[in-house]
Design a protein around this nucleic acid. Structure first.
Lengths: 342, 342
DNA sequence: ATGAAAGCGCTAACAA
DNA sequence: TTGTTAGCGCTTTCAT
């Protein structure tokens, strides 16, 4: 009796082998390029692959070879500007190397929540993991990654004992604060976005600059990630005559703060100078265009992936990659002016 | 001779079975919940799993069961606001159902490029695919998905023959245009963002409203996705006295247009009314706050995933889910005023 | 250079 | 309810 007619399931390597008239391992060899195959057989195999539209099963491959071409990206958020751009950078770099990327969101730093969030991802056979360690969920997730899995952390400040790509936020924040001080402001107020730990680089850089200049250190004001949370803070700041210069943890908060200031009747930069952080795509279009520190998030993601690749390949390689954001001076900062007495 | 000491490899189901003193299938049964297991054995198994920190291998599971808990999201972009939010919505919904999500970016609609971009992803055993069909790469990618794979497309306008979740952009654009016309503008100019096909919903809704009102139809102006591409268009528009109202394809472009208008010395809304689309988080903070149509991208993603789930489960279910964006009237639109003769 | 045989970690079918 | 057996689609020995 002849063979039953194949139903339309995806073809397997066996189908390809039969079609090409070679053994299964030979097909595998042309697929992986692991061993030499005679040109004649290679041609046959390639033809069979094309005819059958064969695609190897990653699952079967992973199972036997114990090597995977998939990485996971773990992040507290995926849609905010910095995160989204970082993820894009990782994806571009990964795709170029034939890696596939999985996204895992950890919304909360609570231990059980973290476990639950990453559980499904960790059942995958992964080549490695990139953790966006910008916030508490990221920090918590990093601790939960099995020790035998290659990992790199991406963040705004260096930390020891871990492979990481970093944006030197503290230095940039310090320079931005120095810029404001240099303009003649007696001090610089600071609006902080949710930090990953007790302190974050932006805040500590700001403080460092104030201390170095022996300027008074105003209390830090905390914003949420929502741009509109800056509005109330802006109104508050408007009521404080010492607030002639404000450094905000990111551009979106700066925009909120500027709106709050405007609602209170103050102009930027005439009455108050405002600096942001990140160089959000809209920062240059804002009125007035925002002075800020450009962070190359996509570059960070790309560097992070390269570091991960080194870990995967076992190439000793570097453990650490840092880059300093570049300051972008625009029109939202200027020399102070005596404010009208109220 | 006794068994060799286990090295620190990840434990397998066999290890768990040995430790618990049961057979491998019994462990499998408690894992999947597919069949009843006596409480006593279940306890033993659960204890062994916890002690060994065992995690089942998704690869092995997929290979034998032919069922996967991974979906792929294919998109032309991941970091722009609407895309990022849509992806977030998909991820949240997927995670809630125990699905894991892969991201695949297709930057170009060129056939070979598309093939290359999705090749690695298609070697994965996927439960289904969500395609963001907002742009040509998305449209091209959709065509390349194997017919046996459950798919849903997400887009701004309905199309037949495919399972899809939709945002009714045409209707919203029509209403926004009617709003502007109702304010007394003789016509409404339109700045288009890159469309997915020859026409997109926003543009056709705009045109429909003009035709219904028998208003003149000005030529469409094309912007890129970059907010700053709106600036030059804004300056152009400033030179056209018939342009007292402008409807932009998205909020970011609207912001660019407004800056161009401002650079030319025109005020919004006094000299020109500007409406955007999407309700970007910064739209309410802009000066003046932007009139726009709020699009629930995250909701779109969530609905899309539910549709996909129905396809995966074979539940007949609905093929189609649509929602209309809601208009948000703010201060960037107002009644026209006679412009100063130049 | 090529094929035969083994087996990755799991679930599905079957028997008990 | 439980265990035994088979086998998913590949890569990896190991012969030849």
């Amino acid at each position: 009796m002849g063979r039953a007619i194949k139903n339309s399931k995806n073809p397997t390597i066996t189908d390809v082998a039969e079609r090409a008239g070679v053994s299964v391992p030979t097909v595998s060899r042309v697929l992986t390029g692991a061993a030499r195959v005679s040109p004649a057989k290679r041609k046959l195999v390639e033809a069979a692959i094309a005819e059958l539209r064969y695609r190897p099963s990653a699952a079967a491959r992973v199972l036997v070879s114990r090597r995977s071409q998939t990485i996971a990206v773990i992040a507290g958020n995926t849609s905010r500007y910095g995160y989204a751009e970082t993820i894009r950078g990782i994806e571009v770099a990964a795709r170029a190397e034939g890696y596939t990327v999985m996204i895992t969101v950890v919304e909360n730093a609570d231990e059980d929540e973290v476990d639950r969030a990453i559980a499904a991802t960790l059942t995958q056979t992964l080549a490695g993991v990139v953790v966006l360690k910008f916030d508490p969920p990221g920090v918590a997730a990093l601790r939960k990654i099995p020790a035998d899995l290659p990992v790199v952390a991406l963040s705004g400040a260096r930390e020891t004992g871990i492979r990481q790509a970093v944006l030197d936020e503290a230095r940039a924040a310090e320079e931005l604060t120095e810029h404001l001080l240099g303009l003649g402001h007696a001090t610089v107020h600071h609006v902080r976005v949710p930090p990953s730990r007790r302190v974050d680089g932006r805040t500590s850089g700001w403080r460092r600059a104030l201390i170095a200049a022996q300027a008074p250190i105003p209390p830090v004001r905390d914003a949420t990630w929502l741009p509109r949370s800056g509005v109330a803070i802006g109104r508050d700041l408007a009521a404080d005559p010492s607030a002639t210069a404000v450094f905000c943890g990111n551009d979106e908060i700066a925009m909120g703060v500027m709106r709050g200031l405007a609602e209170a009747g103050l102009r930027v930069p005439e009455d108050v100078s405002v600096a942001g952080f990140d160089d959000h795509p809209l920062a240059e279009l804002w009125s007035p265009p925002l002075t800020t520190a450009r962070q190359d998030f996509a570059g960070l993601g790309g560097r992070g992936f390269q570091l991960l690749l080194q870990a995967i390949d076992g190439t000793g390689g570097r453990l650490y990659s840092s880059e300093r954001p570049r300051l972008v001076f625009r029109e939202s900062t200027a020399a102070p002016r005596v404010r009208d007495p109220r």
